[in-house]
């Protein structure tokens, strides 16, 4: 009891809309972040914002989950690690229990509900390639459900940039 089990509480929806200045800042932070001593001041200078305002807005955008993250995006395959997309077909009646079980693994980096018989899709991120099969096996043990692994066989070039 006590704990509200509303689906919303399990989602990670943003708690506010970004304003025009936030959007400008988010767009400016999609590309190259400067490797200078005071990078927030450098970004602010381009946008007409003070260093303090850039930092305060970033804090608030992260706090309100408009941004999920700010920092380096690692390709851990290049450092000996591995990523792997995985999917499960989770019975509706068992949904909440399986969400909690899957999310309890630190190796689960993202997890989405999707419209398909395979209704749970998550990404495993591990420090070594062997870690993927190990994490999948632990999820199967925890949940009693099969985990289907979809390793990346080839990545095709895309120009990934979303305008905020």
């Amino acid at each position: 009891m006590g704990e509200p089990a509303a689906p919303r509480a399990r989602g990670l929806a943003a708690s506010r809309e970004p304003d025009a200045v936030d959007r400008k800042l988010i767009n400016a932070l999609q590309g190259d972040f400067p490797l200078v001593e005071q990078p927030y001041a450098a970004v602010g200078a381009r946008l007409g914002l003070s260093e303090d305002e850039v930092i305060a807005r970033l804090n608030s955008l992260l706090e309100d989950r408009v941004l999920t993250r700010f920092g380096p995006m690692f390709q851990i395959e290049r450092m000996g690690g591995a990523f792997c997309l995985a999917a499960m077909a989770v019975p509706e009646s068992d949904w909440d229990r399986v969400v909690d079980a899957v999310n309890s693994l630190t190796e689960v980096a993202h997890n989405y509900r999707r419209t398909h018989a395979f209704n749970m899709w998550f990404v495993l991120a591990t420090g070594s390639p062997e870690g993927i099969a190990d994490a999948a096996a632990r999820i199967e043990t925890l949940t009693g459900l099969p985990v289907h692994l979809f390793p990346k066989e080839r990545e095709f070039f895309v120009e990934m940039k979303l305008d905020a």
């Binding site: 959007r23 988010i26 972040f33 700010f70 920092g71 690692f74 979303l162 905020a164």
Partner: peptide, 20 residues
């Protein structure tokens, strides 16, 4: 690490829903 590709980029990851 940026040059070798170990880091794709340093930047903001928007919550896609929040930006429309």
């Amino acid at each position: 690490m940026l040059a070798s590709g170990a880091i794709r980029r340093i930047g903001a990851v928007p919550n896609h829903y929040a930006i429309g």
